[in-house]
Nucleic acid binder design. Structure first.
Length: 563
RNA sequence: UGGGGCGUCGUCUAAUGGCAGGACAUCAGACUUUGACUCUGAUUAUCAAGGUUCGAAUCCUUGCGCCCCAGCCA
């Protein structure tokens, strides 16, 4: 209790930046970058990084670059470059005129490498990959110097030049930084910084037979762009000494520094690009934008909003501790946004026919229904009401348990914004399945209130008997296991949730929904938020993707009492 | 096993020597023409053991646990 003036503390990166500004480091500048490799689609972990990098720049009046870290031509592709830009923009961030490619720096990086050779700090090594590994040693045994370690500067220059001119086959030589083969940190055991790859690059084509490696390219790209705070994830922490070694040797004056934060993990999903790629390539999902994928494009197609993802990034915070975020947090973010903005509608997913025996045959009345219960400014719409209707099959039970507020023989419920109805008779098919309900309605309850003051516990959604059908896709978590990667003996794909997608082709929707434009969002009352699929919907034939369910304390309650 | 990093409610995250706070989740209740939303209340944490101090999540020591590193990937 007491006063609640507690200021939310700064995260550790904000503290570093504020300290840097106090001390005048980087002349007070803040310049970050988001540096994806274009070898896959961005996922929600990247969304965290995007929000962090662009957010920090925004907060401190700085800039954030978009930089493609495209130094490995064999895995990269322009399709990925396109998707990444689409995703960053959609999330709501703007790199303005600062879209860069590490590949644009190839000439400069080459010159830096030459400079390092001249300083006697890099050499051309002619060991094979296997030999390099062997010479490197392991955690407990130090590495041994390469026999090529002491080549002269002139010889190194000559060899490196010939590597660049394409004289040697792949793998014949590497350029290595000359640091310390006995370092306890294997990263410093003369790491290769250039390799020969006769491969076509998505931007530079066949201009280069050699390509720089990450450690060399990344820090120097940062320096070239005037980055001040180079923020990356924790697994790069070991490499920071190498980052500093390279920058110290080649950059004079203001220089970038690397800081690491912990990457995002979410339960019931996988996050690595390798695994996402496997899901796509082996057909476990329909593509990178399958709505079950935690890719930005998948979440977009599922119906998530940019705002909800930004909110999510804020809520999970920034730190160096391992984080495994509960899927519930993501769901909270999208529900909170859509609750405010999504107009309500009625759709019956699994229809059960209801005939109102005392309602005049052929009569149709238009009932006025609110588009949002808390926001009258969102207006109203008309929904036709008639003798034959559909309700949700789940909303009827012939022999209901205690606490069931919905329809049952002899019980009365309200039809949302319509009338009270009472179940008079249950009609079954030969197999004993309930196929139709005969009900009566109370004409005095039009609009949903009884003039005699009697109450009903349940309010059901419904659609008229002539409601159009629509396809509805119900998505659930892709994995049925909290950590699909936990079991090392089993492939994570074994834990895919068989019910992660349910397609309902005979759902009935209120008439207005038949004209719902692609990418529009609705709350189907009592069920969840839905998004009109932008790819598969056709004019007049929308397909609804379930973004997220509504919270459901009834089902939860049911789950408790056994079963 | 060598090196690096990290340990605060179930999950995230604050507190920077001075009342361990917030969010999510959970539970209970109020409200309700969505068993939604909203509102109210409640439970739950400083990895362990020593030490320094009037006072320790915070400083020191020793353990323990988890994560990362042995690609010519990023």
């Amino acid at each position: 209790m007491t006063t609640t003036n507690e200021t939310q503390g700064l995260n550790f990166l904000q503290e570093i930046i504020e300290e840097d500004r106090r001390t005048g480091k980087h002349a007070g500048r803040v310049h970050t970058r988001f540096p994806p490799e274009p070898n896959g689609y961005l996922h929600i972990g990247h969304a965290k990084s995007i929000c962090l990098n662009f957010g920090l720049a925004q907060q401190y009046g700085g800039k954030c670059n978009l930089r493609f870290d495209d130094t490995n031509p064999v895995t990269e592709d322009t399709d990925y470059v396109e998707s990444i830009q689409r995703d960053v923009k959609w999330l709501g961030f703007d790199w303005e005129d600062r879209k860069y490619f590490a590949s644009d720096y190839f000439p400069k990086l080459y010159d830096f490498a030459v400079e390092l050779i001249k300083q006697g700090k890099a050499y051309v090594c002619s060991l094979s990959p296997d030999e390099i590994r062997e010479y490197r040693g392991d955690f407990t045994t130090p590495g041994r110097d390469s026999p090529y370690r002491n080549r002269s500067v002139d010889e190194n220059l000559d060899l490196f030049h010939r590597m660049r001119s394409g004289e040697f086959p792949d793998g014949a030589h590497t350029l290595r930084a000359k640091i310390d083969m006995t370092s306890p940190n294997p990263v410093l055991r003369d790491p290769p910084i250039y390799r020969i790859r006769h491969a076509h690059h998505h931007r530079t084509g066949d201009a280069w037979p050699i390509y720089p490696l990450y450690d060399f390219a990344h820090c120097l790209s940062d320096a070239i762009e005037g980055i001040t705070h180079s923020v990356c994830t924790l697994e790069f922490e070991n490499r920071r000494v190498l980052y500093d070694w390279i920058v110290d040797n080649l950059i004079k004056g203001d220089r970038p520094y690397q800081y690491e934060f912990s990457r995002l993990n979410l339960n019931y999903t996988v996050m690595s690009k390798r695994k996402l790629l496997k899901l796509v390539n082996e057909g476990f999902v329909s593509g990178w934008d399958d709505p079950r994928m935690m890719t930005i494009s998948g979440l977009r197609r599922r119906g998530f909003t940019p705002k909800s993802l930004r909110d999510f990034a804020t809520r999970v915070g920034v730190s160096k501790t391992q984080q495994l975020i509960d899927m519930g947090v993501l769901e909270l973010c999208i529900r909170e946004d859509l609750n405010e903005t999504a107009p309500r509608a009625m759709a019956v997913l699994r229809p059960l026919k209801v005939v109102l025996e005392n309602y005049p045959e052929g009569q149709v009345e238009q009932l006025e229904v609110q588009n949002h219960p808390q926001k009258p400014e969102m207006g109203t719409r008309q929904v036709p009401f008639m003798r034959e209707l559909y309700i949700e099959a789940d909303d009827f039970m012939e022999d209901p348990p205690k606490g069931f507020f919905r329809l049952a023989p002899g019980k009365e419920v309200r039809l949302r914004s319509a009338y009270f109805i009472k179940c008079e008779k249950v009609i079954k098919d030969a197999a004993g399945n309930v196929v139709e309900l005969r009900c009566s309605y109370d004409p005095a309850t039009r609009g949903g209130n009884a003039p005699d003051g009697r109450k009903v516990k349940g309010t059901l959604h419904w659609v008229p008997g002539n409601a159009p059908t629509a396809e509805v896709r119900l998505y659930d978590r892709l994995f049925s296991m909290e950590d699909p990667e936990a079991d090392e003996k089993r492939e994570f794909t074994e834990f895919i949730n068989p019910d992660s997608l349910q397609v309902l082709r005979d759902a009935r929707v209120e008439p207005m929904l038949a004209d719902a434009p692609a990418e529009s969002r609705f709350q189907f009352e009592r069920q969840g938020y839905f998004y009109v699929d932008p790819k598969d919907s056709k004019a007049g034939k929308p397909i609804f993707n379930r973004t997220v369910t509504l919270k459901d304390s009834w089902t939860k309650e049911q789950g408790k009492g056994g079963k």
